[in-house]
Simulated scan of single mutants.
Amino acid sequence: MTTTTTARPDAVPTLPGKPRRLHRPLLWVSIGLAATTLVAIGGALFDDRVLLGHPIWMKPLKFAISLGIYCVTLAWMLSLQTKARRLGWWMGTVVAVGVAAEMVLIAGQVVVRGRQLHFNMSTPTDQLIHNIMATTIYLVWAAVLVVAVQLLFDKPGDRALRWSIRLALGTTLGGMLLGNLMFRVTPAQGREAAEAGNQLHFGSHSVGVEDGGAGLPITGWSTQAGDLRIGHFLGVHALQAIPLVALGLVLLARRYAILRPEGPRTALVFVGAASYAGLIWLVTWQALRGESVVHPGGATLTAGASWLGATILLSLLVLFRARRTSLVSTPYR
C-alpha cells in the first residue's frame, strides 16, 4: 500500500524552486535590450538632438528597459510550465521576434531617420513603419494570450503563485489593449488633414493638449493634461507587479505564521490584483478627462481615496479571517 504526504497547512512556504531552463529566445532578446539600454544612455548623454520637445534617445531607452523586463519575466513564466511546453516555447519565440522587430523599428525611425514614430502617416515610409509596428504588437498580444490560456490549465508553484501568474497575464493583456485609446484624431490633426487633403497624423498620447509639451523627467508623461501612456504602462507591467505580490507574501510568511497557509496568501493575491486593476482604471479615467497625473482634481482624489481604502479594508478582512481560522484550528495546549 502506498501513502501520500501533504504539506502541513502551517508549514513555512518556500520560493519556487530552480526553474527549468529559461526560454532562450526571450533571454537573448532581453540581453540585446540590456545592451541597447547602455547604448541609449550614451546617446542621451552625448547626442543633443530633440524630437517633439524630448531628447531623441529617450524613446529607445524607455522601450529597451520596459521590453527587456517584460521578456525576462515571460521567460521565467514559461520555464514554470508543466504542460504543452512546446506550444509555450513557440509562443515565447513569437514574442521574442516581435519585440526584437519592434525595437529595430523604434531605433530606426526615431534615432536614424529622426522622425516621429507613433501616429505618423506623413510619408509612405512613415505609414509603412507605423503599420508594421501595429501588426507586430497584435501578434505579440495574441502569443501572450495563448500563454495565458495555457497557464489557466497548468499548475506551476503553489496556489497563490499560480493565480498571481494567471491574473498578471490577464491584466497585462488588458493593459496592452489600452494603447488603442490613443488612436483618435485630435482637433489639430483634424485641421491639418483638412488643409493637406489627407491624414498626416492619427492619434496622440495626450488628452487636452497636443503631444510634445512639458512632461515628467524620463517618462515624458504630460504635466499639462491627461496622458494615456500611464494606464497603458501600468497595465503592461502588471506582468511583474502581481507575481511580486505572491513572492513578497512568501517572504513575509517566514515571519508571520498567519500567511503560511495557501488560502490567505491566495486571497491577498486576488486583492492585490483587483487593487492594481483599480489603479489602472483610475489613472486612465483621469487621463481621459484631460487631467494631468501631477494635478489631480477633487474627483480623482476622492476616487483615489476610495481605491486605497477598499484595498486596505479587503486586506484586513482577509487577515482577520485567517487569524480567526488559525485560532479555531489550533488545539489548546
Rank of each mutant, 00 (worst) to 15 (best):
T4F: 07
A7F: 14
A7I: 12
A11F: 05
T14M: 14
L15K: 05
R20F: 07
R20S: 01
P25C: 14
W28V: 07
G32H: 14
L33Q: 02
V39I: 04
G43A: 04
H54R: 06
I56R: 11
W57E: 02
K59F: 01
K59G: 02
L61T: 08
L61F: 11
F63C: 00
F63G: 08
I69H: 08
C71T: 15
V72F: 05
T73D: 10
T73M: 13
A75D: 03
M77T: 05
M77E: 06
K83C: 04
V95Q: 05
A96Q: 06
V99W: 00
A100P: 04
G108H: 15
Q109L: 00
Q109F: 07
V110S: 09
V112C: 07
G114L: 09
S122A: 06
T123P: 03
N131K: 09
M133I: 04
A134H: 08
T136F: 07
V144G: 04
V147P: 14
V147W: 07
L151D: 15
L152V: 14
F153H: 05
D154C: 07
I165N: 09
R166K: 12
L167V: 10
A168G: 05
T172C: 08
G174E: 09
L177V: 15
N180E: 09
L181Y: 15
A188Q: 15
E192I: 00
A193V: 10
A193F: 10
A194C: 12
N198I: 11
H201T: 04
F202C: 12
S204D: 03
S204I: 03
S204F: 12
S206K: 02
V207D: 08
E210N: 12
G215E: 07
P217H: 12
P217F: 10
I218L: 14
W221K: 14
W221T: 10
G226D: 09
G226I: 08
G231R: 09
L234M: 12
L234V: 03
P243S: 07
L244V: 10
L249K: 01
L251P: 00
L252Q: 03
R254G: 10
A257E: 09
I258V: 13
R260N: 08
R260D: 08
E262K: 00
P264E: 11
T266W: 14
F270K: 00
S275R: 00
W285K: 07
Q286P: 10
L288H: 15
S292A: 03
S292V: 01
P296V: 12
T302G: 01
A303N: 03
A303P: 01
A305W: 02
S306G: 10
W307S: 00
A310W: 01
A310Q: 01
L313G: 00
V318F: 08
V318Q: 11
V318I: 07
L319N: 06
R321S: 06
A322P: 14
V328F: 03
T330S: 13
T330D: 11
